[in-house]
C-alpha cells in the first residue's frame, strides 16, 4: 500500500491537534515522531489481517481508523486471556513470575495509550516465555505474551505444584527469589528426562542413574539427529497432554542446545 507524504502529513496534523486538544500549534520532533509511529502502527494493523479490508484506493485515514478498531479488539482479547490466566493462577512461589503476570500486567490495561501511542507496550515483561516475541510491539506483543503464558500455564497444570517446585528447587538455590528463567523450560526438560528414563512424567522425579541414561540417549548423536529426537519426544508429549500442537516441538532446537550446555 502506498500513500503520499501529503496524505500522511494531513493525518499527522489531525492527530497532533487532537492529541494537544487544539491548544498548541506546534509539537516537538520527539512528540511528532511518537504520534507518527502510532499512526503507522494502526495502518499496519490493516495489513496483518487475513481478509483484505482495503484496496489500493483506500484513503489512509480510513485505514488508520480501521486500524484503531483492530488494535482495540486486540486489547479486549488480551484482557480476556489475562482474566482467564488469573483463574487458579499458580505462581509456584516464583517472585518474577508473579510480579510480571499478576502485579505487572494490570499496568498495561490501565496505562496503554491505544490511540496515540499504541506501539508502546509499557511493560518490560521480565518473566520470559518460552518463545520471546521481541519483534512485536504494543498490544501485539502483550497479546502474544499472554497467549504464551496461557499455553505454558496449561502445560504446567499437568503436574502437581509440589513436583514443579521441587524441580525449581533443584535448579536454583532460593528459587523463589532467584529464579528468573522460564518455569516451563525447567519442567519440560525434567518431563522429557522422565520420558527417556521410562519414569512417570507427572512425578517429575529422576535419579542420578536416570540422568546418565539421558546423556547416553543423546551422546552419539550429531546435531540433526539430536534435534530430531527432541522433536519426536515433544510431539509425543503434546499429544499425550493435549497441548497446543507445534508450540513445544518448535522449541526442540533451543531445547537441544540448552541440554548440551
Amino acid at each position: 500500500m502506498e500513500y503520499s507524504e501529503e496524505e500522511l502529513l494531513e493525518l499527522l496534523n489531525q492527530v497532533i491537534h487532537k492529541n494537544v486538544s487544539y491548544e498548541s500549534t506546534s509539537v516537538t520532533y520527539e512528540k511528532a515522531q511518537v504520534l507518527m509511529d502510532g499512526i503507522l502502527y494502526h495502518v499496519e494493523e490493516c495489513f496483518t489481517e487475513k481478509e483484505k479490508l482495503w484496496t489500493k484506493t483506500t484513503p489512509l485515514e480510513v485505514l488508520y481508523h480501521q486500524g484503531i478498531e483492530m488494535t482495540k479488539e486486540k486489547v479486549y482479547q488480551a484482557k480476556e486471556i489475562y482474566l482467564k490466566v488469573l483463574e487458579d493462577f499458580q505462581d509456584y512461589h516464583v517472585r518474577n513470575y508473579r510480579d510480571t503476570v499478576v502485579k505487572g500486567m494490570p499496568g498495561f490495561f490501565v496505562r496503554y495509550d491505544l490511540i496515540y501511542e499504541p506501539q508502546n507496550h509499557i511493560l518490560t515483561l521480565d518473566y520470559p516465555v518460552l518463545f520471546p516475541t521481541q519483534e512485536k510491539r504494543g498490544v501485539d506483543l502483550i497479546l502474544d505474551y499472554m497467549e504464551n503464558i496461557q499455553i505454558e500455564k496449561e502445560f504446567l497444570e499437568h503436574f502437581p505444584p509440589e513436583a514443579v517446585m521441587q524441580v525449581l528447587e533443584e535448579t536454583v538455590r532460593d528459587y523463589k527469589n532467584n529464579y528468573m528463567d522460564n518455569i516451563t523450560y525447567a519442567v519440560l526438560r525434567q518431563a522429557l528426562f522422565c520420558m527417556i528414563a521410562g519414569k512417570s512424567v507427572e512425578a517429575l522425579q529422576i535419579t542420578e542413574g536416570d540422568k546418565e541414561e539421558v546423556q547416553e540417549f543423546f551422546l552419539e548423536d550429531g546435531k540433526e539427529k539430536g534435534i530430531f529426537k527432541a522433536v519426536k519426544l515433544l510431539e509425543i508429549m503434546e499429544q499425550r497432554m493435549s497441548l497446543k500442537e507445534g508450540y513445544f516441538t518448535s522449541y526442540a532446537p533451543e531445547f537441544y542446545f540448552r541440554l548440551l550446555s
Binding site: 500549534t25 516537538t28 520532533y29
Partner: peptide, 17 residues
C-alpha cells in the same frame, strides 16, 4: 526557530496569534 528548537508546526502558524 522551529528547526533550532526541534519543533514541528504543520498547520496554522503562531505568528498571527
Amino acid at each position: 526557530t522551529l528547526r533550532m528548537y526541534k519543533r514541528i508546526e504543520l498547520g496554522e502558524s503562531i505568528l498571527g496569534s
